[in-house]
């Protein structure tokens, strides 16, 4: 039986997904061994079945991220945090630095939408449509919200790294990464 994989990008930039595509022709090898369930690569928006592996890019900055992540945890045996945002919060987590304010979330939104001279916002309003998920008080990493089985650092981790990890995982052997694959300077 082919292993089932699901992927998603939460508060990320899809860079890690692009990196996955960087495994190039080995995608064909991968498809020999796995079947993709819910993933932006096939545009499936819901889980169709329980999965073996879940790859999650990005951290959690709003309620929809949390909901999706909890769904991934319930539906995947092995959950992998892919990339810096998923592991440590990445760029979005910079807003957690507004910690000494009385009202950090308001300060963050006002800086982003009202008080900067770099923005064009004639309505002078902070977006608050019902369709927009509510923001969390701060950005959380995946491991803050659910249990995570593996974390892959990197911004993004290279296609080579992702390939090595998936290959090892599917073959049931320990992952061995070279020094270069875990070096990011």
């Amino acid at each position: 039986m082919k292993k089932r994989i699901a992927t998603v990008s939460l508060a990320g930039c899809f860079g890690c997904h692009m990196s996955l595509l960087d495994i190039d022709e080995r995608l064909l090898d991968l498809l020999q061994q796995v079947e993709f369930d819910r993933t932006p690569l096939n545009d499936l928006k819901r889980f169709t079945r329980h999965c073996d592996i879940g790859l999650v890019e990005g951290g959690c900055c709003n309620e929809e991220n949390v909901y999706t992540l909890q769904e991934f945890r319930r539906n995947c045996d092995v959950l992998i945090a892919v990339g810096q945002c998923a592991v440590m919060g990445g760029l979005p987590v910079m807003r957690n630095a507004i910690m000494h304010s009385e009202d950090p979330l308001r300060e963050c939104l006002e800086t982003a939408y009202l008080n900067s001279d770099k923005i064009y916002n004639p309505s002078n309003r902070i977006p608050s449509d019902e369709a927009l998920p509510l923001l969390l008080d701060k950005v959380y990493t995946l491991a803050d919200v659910v249990k995570v089985d593996y974390q892959i650092p990197g911004c993004p981790p290279s296609g080579e790294t992702l390939w090595n990890i998936l290959e090892a995982l599917l073959a049931g052997r320990p992952v061995e990464l070279t020094y270069e694959q875990l070096r990011y300077d």
Binding site: E63, R74, I126, S128, L134, L136, D137, D144, V146
Partner: peptide
């Protein structure tokens, strides 16, 4: 056993946002 972190409390994480947006959470 549910794989969720008991220390993460979605209700308190949304409190500030509810107040600022003056609406409740569609999900939670």
């Amino acid at each position: 056993g549910d794989g969720l972190q008991a220390s993460f409390d979605i209700q308190s994480a949304l409190e500030e946002s509810r107040r600022l947006a003056k609406r409740r959470s569609m999900i939670y």
